[in-house]
Amino acid sequence: MAQEVWIVAEQRDGVLRKVSFEIASAARRIADELQTDVAAVLLGSGVSALAGALGKYGVDTVYVADGPVFQNYTTEAYAAAVAKIVKEKDPAILLLPASVQGKDLSSRLVGKLATGMASDCTELRIENGKLVARRPMYAAKCFADVVIDGTPQMASLRPNVFAAVEMPKAGTAVAFDAAIDPASLKTKVLEIQKESGGKVELTEANVIVSGGRGMKGPENYALIEELAAVLGAAVGASRAAVDAGWRPQTDQVGQTGKTVSPNLYVACGISGAIQHLAGMSSSKVIVAINKDPDAPIFAKADYGVVDDLFKVVPEITKAAKELME
């Protein structure tokens, strides 16, 4: 009978991504409640040695398929491999990250395993031996508790929400043969163009500084970038700023952009349209800087400064810099 709690770990270029430890920790907590083991599936090329690192975060067994066919992520090879080992071992619960790769892989697995999944969850609990997953809907205008009647019970977990907690377990690597014929694959990765300058990714950032319509033009984002540099933050933007062409689409936070959950979100010149709030309301601490005291963003903010951002933001940068030094 299905029992164990499983995760699919995510690595890139042979390095486990932080979200893998977050979901391992979430899996461990649930498994302890269910008095069962945690196993991880790890795919890649030359990645077998990473099993121990997962063990540190509570994983008992790591099923590894290692080979050149897994060098770059493709839906076909990865989904076939995970489905094969899941069907063989029959875990009760299967968790994946709601990262870009995890969203693609998890949803294909729902099809392959003919089950159900709660996407982009922010809380998990066990009730009567079953997983109950809480997730935002309607761009976080409401939340839903979801149960899965299929097997395994699948959930994808929003990055940066679940704490990664060290809890040493064996992390024993068990190799398995995914039996993927590279010639059968209908998709391939032609190229991966890395963004230069080690930019902090919004969905993984601990701190985000965002600018909106109040920035008045693309040239003024230097103010935001300077503060971001001091705080080690990623730079975000509102839909207004992206639609005006001031910032790239990949910077957009909100309902038709990225959903972010940093420890600190600093909104500069953002009024707080409902579709923007949707993307950042799960941030732990929110700071709003806006000259309009009636801006809706202040209703969500933990700390507000009602003033001209062009006067305040450089002063914040200066004060933060002094503090850091």
């Binding site: 089950t115 159900g116 976080a140 299929g150 929110i286």
Partner: peptide, 14 residues
């Protein structure tokens, strides 16, 4: 259906 909503609720108040 395989994924079933058991309850919906408003977002947590800040």
């Amino acid at each position: 259906q395989k994924a079933r909503i058991i309850k919906m609720m408003p977002p947590p108040q800040r």
